[in-house]
Design a protein around this nucleic acid. Structure first.
Lengths: 201, 201
DNA sequence: CCCGATAACATAGCAAAGCTATGTATTGTG
DNA sequence: CACAATACATAGCTTTGCTATGTTATCGGG
């Protein structure tokens, strides 16, 4: 009884927008649809407007981030895994800095709390594993420590990706995470070794 | 031989833009000059365009931040002072979140490296005082530790001001800084007490 | 198998954005 | 005092996002 939306068009527009964003070309309504064969109305039928497109872009950014984090192979050393997750997080931000900025450009309200929560969850699980392995004290709240790790990762990614710090400042991730996890109970020497193993690919 | 620009007009426009930004009103060329008596051309003679205005806004943001940090009274406890600087940094971001976002919206290249460096310098000096007082190990690089403190402060401010974390997440500043400074050599108990004194107003 | 209702889609045009062109006024300097 | 250079005002151009309107395609029922 109705004509259904073609899912291919939606992903086509999202991919093209991400591509233009990565190429540092301004993503405007007309430049987005130019050459795709679809008209400007497609943006409104599929996203309800440009704001909806940006919202979908943020979702796409979090989806790619989640995939990137899920691809990190876990080991027997959960602290190494935490550092590997942090390195993957930062690396993801560096491969598409503009998309990363869009993800946190919450100029319009976000329906994306769930996507951001997924990012946290992989960190929370790694913290729980580290606690279970006896690396962290029992009284550390996994969610809180994961949030603090996220704060470090985001601060680093944000200041380097489109900010004032140079690329080599990413190396600060090692001492920052080492300090945080040592404060959570890990042995300093072992902690630093684990983190360096996980941070450097 | 020439007609000079009136500095009052420039600061008038900057102040009005900051005011509209704080009121969460869209800052457009026409809405900015509306009611001020000056015409749209003023934005071009004084800033060269809207991009120049945003650039000036970032400079203004860093200037206000520097003033805010300079107003922090130093004590005999340099670690407390470091926490107080961090709290002032975060507090400044919370009182004008949109201005803070503009400061790091480097969509156009920044001539603002100096302003950002000033922010770092107050941190560097505090770290140097802490090292001289024997709170940190001698082998800590003041610039590196200051940068790491900045990373924590910015990550926190960015995730809370316009991001997904709630206000109460600002309390993570205490354990984060405690871990960092303890890792730099401070005694854990003394460190936590100093930071809590400096963090809470 | 076809027909109608419903939604996708194309086209055109509107309001507002930033910017530029051009003429006028003003002011510092020789 | 007079000139020249610059600030300033006005108007209009281009592009932006968006909407209104007409057309076309598609899914479901008879």
């Amino acid at each position: 009884m109705v004509r259904l939306k073609d899912p291919a068009v939606r992903s086509l527009l999202i991919d093209r927008a991400a591509q233009m964003l990565a190429a540092r070309q301004p993503v405007t309504l007309r430049s987005l649809v130019a050459g795709t064969g679809v008209s400007t109305m497609a943006v409104y039928t599929y996203f309800g407007g440009m704001d909806g497109l940006w919202s979908a872009m943020r979702q796409e950014g979090f989806t790619r981030l989640a995939a990137r984090l899920a691809a990190v192979s876990m080991s027997a050393d959960p602290v190494r895994d935490l550092a590997a997750l942090g390195a993957a997080y930062v690396s993801n931000a560096m491969t598409s800095p503009d998309l990363y900025r869009v993800m946190f450009d919450a100029g319009f309200e976000l329906e994306n709390a769930a996507a951001a929560d997924d990012t946290l969850h992989s960190l929370v699980r790694a913290v729980e594993r580290a606690t279970a392995a006896g690396r962290f004290r029992d009284d550390v709240d996994p969610l809180e420590l994961a949030t603090q790790s996220w704060t470090i990762g985001h601060g680093l990614a944000s200041l380097v990706a489109t900010g004032p710090l140079p690329h080599q400042s990413l190396a600060h991730g090692v001492p920052l995470l080492t300090a945080l996890f040592t404060g959570a109970g890990d042995h300093p020497e072992q902690c630093r070794r684990s983190i360096e193993r996980g941070w450097h690919p």
